[in-house]
């Protein structure tokens, strides 16, 4: 087996606002003819020259303000966002768990959605049928699984998505802000499962605003701000620095963040 790894070299990601802009309509075009405002370069640099190596067995946490680039970074690792420049290489079967309320077929039952998700995560249909009871039990959704998922609450989506994603035996699990949405008992169960998963020596990268969770799970933490990595090191040190910064006790921001 080749060693699992995630390796990002000088990765930048740029979102063009122009292509998706709301003003890009016939109405907007005609309005633009009248007041000829100079067109500005419309893009957001979500990641700027990110370099990161993650090796087998590492559990990496991501912290940073909203919009710091955490989700984008996870999606680059998953291979969903191709970098605008730079090289992203991920070796291993990735199981992403993002944006938990999308990627569902709203008019279909919980069962059917489990099947579809598991399939999209690379499970064989026989394997899915074999694991269905286990997934259902873990999700604790009970008879709700017979109902169309449009009737689900956010927490229920998370239960379903988490139950499926972690049943896949992923080699690399990428989690984005999902643990917060489950209720207390589910969070407990999810914790147990995460621990089991990590004991298998695979890669986990997860973003969270819960510093307790990060401290518990991650031996390494990456602090991001405005698309750059500010600090990358052992969790306690990085979490402390972030805390100090966030609470305003330290006015000294590492230099790279000021740009």
């Amino acid at each position: 087996m080749t060693a699992l790894s995630i390796s990002l070299t000088n990765v930048s990601v740029r979102f063009d606002i122009d292509a998706a802009a709301d003003g890009h309509t016939l109405k907007g075009f005609l309005a633009g003819l009248r007041n000829r405002a100079p067109r500005q370069a419309n893009f957001v640099e979500a990641l700027k020259n990110v370099n990161l190596e993650v090796r087998a067995g590492e559990r990496v946490g991501l912290i940073g303000h909203n919009g710091a680039g955490k989700s984008t970074l996870l999606k680059v690792m998953a291979g969903i966002y191709p970098p605008t420049t730079g090289v992203a290489k991920t070796v291993g079967h990735v199981c992403p768990l993002f944006e938990f309320a999308t990627g569902f077929e709203y008019n279909r039952s919980g069962w059917e959605n489990i099947r579809i998700r598991a399939m999209l995560l690379g499970m064989h249909p026989d394997e899915i049928e074999a694991k269905l009871p286990e997934i259902a039990e873990f999700s604790e959704l009970g008879r709700f699984l017979d109902y169309p998922v449009r009737t689900y609450s956010t927490g229920m989506f998370v239960r379903l998505a988490f139950a499926v994603s972690t049943s896949v035996n992923p080699e690399i699990l990428l989690l984005d802000e999902v643990m917060g949405a489950g209720d207390l008992s589910f969070t407990e169960k999810a914790n147990v499962r995460m621990r089991e998963f990590m004991d298998q020596g695979k890669i986990l990268v997860f973003s969270s605003h819960s510093l307790d969770l990060l401290t518990e799970y991650c031996n390494r933490t990456v602090w991001m701000n405005r698309g750059r990595i500010i600090e990358d090191g052992p969790t306690p040190a990085v979490v402390n620095a972030y805390k100090n910064h966030a609470l305003g006790r330290s006015t000294m921001l590492p230099e790279s963040a000021a740009t």
Binding site: A78, I80, P96, G103, L120
Partner: peptide, 10 residues
Amino acid sequence: AEGYIKQFTY
């Protein structure tokens, strides 16, 4: 398929 494309790697 936006929801799928942004979430799964197929």
